[in-house]
Design a protein around this nucleic acid. Structure first.
Lengths: 186, 186
DNA sequence: TGACAAGCGGGGCGAGCGTTCCGTATCTTC
DNA sequence: GAAGATACGGAACGCTCGCCCCGCTTGTCA
């Protein structure tokens, strides 16, 4: 508990593991063998386990960082002058992020992995921020009013999934536009 | 090659395995342990393997049957009077099917499983049928014209995914409506 | 620079799962 | 109903992957 400072090499290895994990998870999702992460980091599997008690904990560490960034962005947009644009801009950012980060889909899907309290907390914060953007967009008359957060959540998971499987950028863009068009009022 | 008729018990077991597999794959996706399928069928694992050379082959057998049904439906709708309704009706049927059949998502996702020629063939037929519905709907002015088959495919995968994660029926319905609204012309 | 704590690597264990093997049971045919 | 072919069950194998262990190395601090 006393959190004595890490030895220099330990600190360096910890950072390397995190970086490697971020890369590997983004590329292959939660499924990457832990050995592969260790290999990329240039350390042994034992070293990974000294820094992160389980593979799940490592995944969680990576995810928390990424979600925090998104939450921050959402908070910024919530102060924007144009609530409609803010809402759709944020969806765009989500889609963009998901395109290169397979792990995010895994999180959204809740696929198999039971993540800890830290992620649950972020998840809640994310929902709150998104809910704020949605309500403001609706009040401004830019977003259809017959949907709520559960609908938007499911829709987003689908959109992220679609954008991830959609081959080239052109396709991705058209898919994204189609879905957002469906979300607009009128 | 001579395809001698199966012994009575063998035939019965084969049918039981197929039925159990259909059920299990629908519930849990490709991921179900083969032992679980054998258990449901009331046979040993060895028996499953005598009838289907690999787990993949069994999966393929189940999927081919389901996709064939969808293709037939699409063919029927292609002759409908109202091309717009035909298109959206078919999307509805797809979504409905996907709701209860986890394996279909796995197929669409191409997730990990490399399926054989039989599925590839069906997949192509399915795309053709869907393409016909799309083009007719577009020509009738019911479907937006700035999207093509690759876009629709990706979108459908997303929609199916969204519909599958969307909790209750109400949510599913709203999600589906939002996406189809995005697909409409205008 | 020496001594001790801190950290490292990677071999190894165990669990889950696809697949195979083979001794036994069941059906078929005469 | 007996003999031979056919099919069955489930134990066992091998592979992958998460996780642990322990003999060795490296950093730290006097």
């Amino acid at each position: 508990m006393a959190d004595r400072p890490l030895r220099a090499d330990a600190r360096r290895n910890r950072d390397r593991v995190l970086a490697a994990a971020q890369e590997a998870f983004a590329e292959h999702g939660v499924g990457v063998p832990l050995d592969e992460i260790a290999r990329r980091a240039g350390v042994g599997a034992g070293t990974v386990y000294r820094h992160f008690p389980t593979k799940e904990a490592l995944f969680e560490a990576v995810v928390v960082h990424q979600v925090d960034e998104l939450i921050e962005e959402a908070a910024g947009l919530a102060r924007s002058e144009d609530p409609g644009a803010a809402f759709f801009d944020f969806l765009g950012r989500l889609a963009e992020t998901a395109t290169t980060k397979r792990d995010l889909t895994d999180v959204l899907a809740g696929s198999g992995v039971d993540l800890g309290a830290a992620v649950a907390e972020r998840s809640e914060a994310m929902m709150k921020a998104l809910g704020r953007l949605l309500r403001r967009g609706q009040r401004a008359g830019a977003v259809r009013t017959d949907i709520g957060m559960p609908d938007l959540t499911a829709l987003l998971k689908g959109a992220i999934y679609a954008v991830q499987v959609g081959g080239d950028n052109r396709t991705r863009e058209r898919v994204f536009r189609t879905i957002t068009d469906g979300l607009r009022a009128g």
